Amino acid sequence: MADQLTEEQIAEFKEAFSLFDKDGDGTITTKELGTVMRSLGQNPTEAELQDMINEVDADGNGTIDFPEFLTMMARKMKDTDSEEEIREAFRVFDKDGNGYISAAELRHVMTNLGEKLTDEEVDEMIREADIDGDGQVNYEEFVQMMTAK
């Protein structure tokens, strides 16, 4: 299944994987998964984290390695993001709930994920998604960005 991913997608997933893999040992533990999910405003229980890991832990060693992570991402993409997942993601970014993602809100979430971005990089990300040019990202623009192939 992971063989249907483009090189660009694999590179993006590698970057995402390293955000989860806090200690850089090449595997994601339940603790690391929990840290990232909490930084995104989720509050999973230990059991939920274990279930999430077990779902993709092909070799049964209790952690997720990069090939397992790729399989999980490929699977998720095949079920292409349901509207509800996209709306949920939008809410994570839209901290003040005004229906727009500002540069400050984007920077806040990315920083929580451990991504240190310059102001230019954040502005560039907003510009790429900002179709109507108002300097922020509304829900429609967010959907376009998330579903762009």
Rank of each mutant, 00 (worst) to 15 (best):
D3A: 06
Q4N: 15
Q4K: 11
L5N: 03
E7F: 12
E7Q: 11
E8L: 15
E8K: 07
Q9R: 12
I10D: 03
F13N: 00
E15I: 14
A16L: 10
A16R: 04
F17I: 10
F17Y: 05
S18F: 12
K22W: 01
D23C: 01
T30L: 07
T30M: 03
K31H: 14
G34R: 12
V36D: 09
M37S: 03
R38S: 08
R38Y: 00
S39I: 12
G41L: 06
Q42N: 04
N43T: 15
P44T: 12
P44H: 09
T45I: 08
E46A: 09
L49G: 13
L49S: 09
M52L: 10
M52E: 06
N54M: 09
E55Q: 10
V56W: 05
V56E: 07
D57E: 13
D57V: 09
A58S: 07
A58H: 09
G60R: 08
G62T: 01
P67A: 10
F69L: 11
M72L: 14
A74R: 06
R75P: 09
D79S: 05
T80R: 08
D81G: 12
D81P: 02
D81C: 10
S82A: 14
E83H: 13
E84R: 11
E84W: 03
E84L: 08
E85S: 00
I86K: 05
I86A: 08
R87A: 15
F90C: 05
F90V: 01
R91W: 04
F93D: 14
F93M: 04
K95I: 04
G99M: 05
Y100N: 12
S102F: 05
S102Y: 00
A104Y: 05
L106C: 04
H108A: 11
T111W: 02
N112G: 15
L113M: 01
L113Q: 02
G114S: 00
G114T: 04
K116L: 14
K116P: 14
L117V: 05
E120S: 14
E121L: 00
E121Q: 07
V122H: 06
V122E: 04
R127S: 07
E128L: 06
D130P: 01
I131C: 07
I131K: 05
G133E: 11
G135N: 06
Q136N: 08
Q136C: 02
V137I: 12
V137S: 06
V137Y: 04
V137G: 04
V137D: 04
N138P: 15
Y139K: 04
Y139T: 04
A148Q: 15
A148T: 13
K149V: 04
